[in-house]
């Protein structure tokens, strides 16, 4: 049958592929929403060994790969060399202090391995962290009676966070100077950041440069935007994520 012989009219004749395909895609999208959580876990599991040895970083672009997403609320990534970095420790303490990076690494180190869970849903499994316990820093400065909260600040000038004294003294709350087996990059909040293992990622303040001990709560940056102050993973922000397992010393 010659091509010219056909009397088909475009738009009227032929197979309604479009309607079927669009409905099919809507169905596929809905199915993806319903089972995506499980599929994503499998993808992340499958990719983890590849990402670990992939020098190009391309495998990180595959959706669903367990990877960090970088948030910065200011116009650029704050950058500071380890040698220039200082941590001001003040407020209701007996011995206010300004620490250098070397001061921090001379203290007793702790290593933790725990998941990083973001309140928006992504999670990076088994991230190795190294730093010092926040409680050790507080002991070093000597917390005065009546102190109830901490106010933490970032050298980006905008990001702030808060913790209760009880939360700050947990053994899985650290001031970290290494993660993922190396120095903390500026994208991840280096040279020094907070890591609050049992809470959602926004509590783990990046680009840490100040700890102030206070007698009142001052909600942090994201908390002003509506996120919970007590950000326990799985028990806040209306979420029911699995709390991260913390291992290490």
């Amino acid at each position: 049958m010659g091509a010219r012989a056909d009397r088909e009219v475009e738009g009227r004749d032929g197979t309604p592929v479009g309607r079927r395909a669009v409905l099919g895609l809507l169905g596929l999208g809905t199915a993806g929403v319903l089972v995506g959580a499980r599929v994503q876990d499998k993808v992340a599991e499958g990719l983890a060994p590849i990402s670990a040895i992939d020098p190009t970083g391309l495998s990180d672009l595959v959706p669903g790969a367990g990877r960090f997403r970088i948030y910065t609320v200011t116009g650029d990534l704050p950058e500071m060399a380890r040698s220039a970095w200082r941590l001001r420790l003040g407020g209701l303490v007996d011995r206010p202090d300004t620490l250098t990076f070397a001061d921090l690494t001379e203290m007793e180190p702790v290593g933790l391995t725990a998941d990083f869970q973001c309140v928006t849903g992504w999670r990076v499994a088994d991230v190795p962290w190294k730093g010092v316990r926040l409680s050790d820093l507080l002991d070093r400065a000597g917390v005065q009676p009546g102190a109830t909260h901490l106010r933490l600040t970032s050298f980006d000038g905008v990001y702030t966070e808060s913790l209760t004294m009880e939360q700050a003294r947990r053994p899985d709350v650290i001031v970290a100077y290494e993660m993922l087996g190396g120095a903390i990059t500026k994208a991840h909040g280096g040279p020094v950041r907070l890591y609050v293992a049992p809470m959602y990622g926004y509590k783990s303040l990046k680009w840490l440069d100040g700890i102030e001990v206070t007698d009142h709560l001052e909600p942090g940056y994201w908390e002003h935007l509506g996120y919970d102050v007590d950000a326990w993973v799985g028990r806040s922000n209306g979420r029911d994520d699995e709390p991260p397992e913390v291992s290490g010393s």
């Binding site: 993806g32 929403v33 995506g36 599929v39 994503q40 959706p63 029911d240």
Partner: peptide, 14 residues
């Protein structure tokens, strides 16, 4: 619910 949100992120990414 949590599962739906993760699923939506997954679909939105792909």
């Amino acid at each position: 619910p949590e599962g739906i949100r993760t699923g939506a992120t997954f679909v939105h990414d792909w």
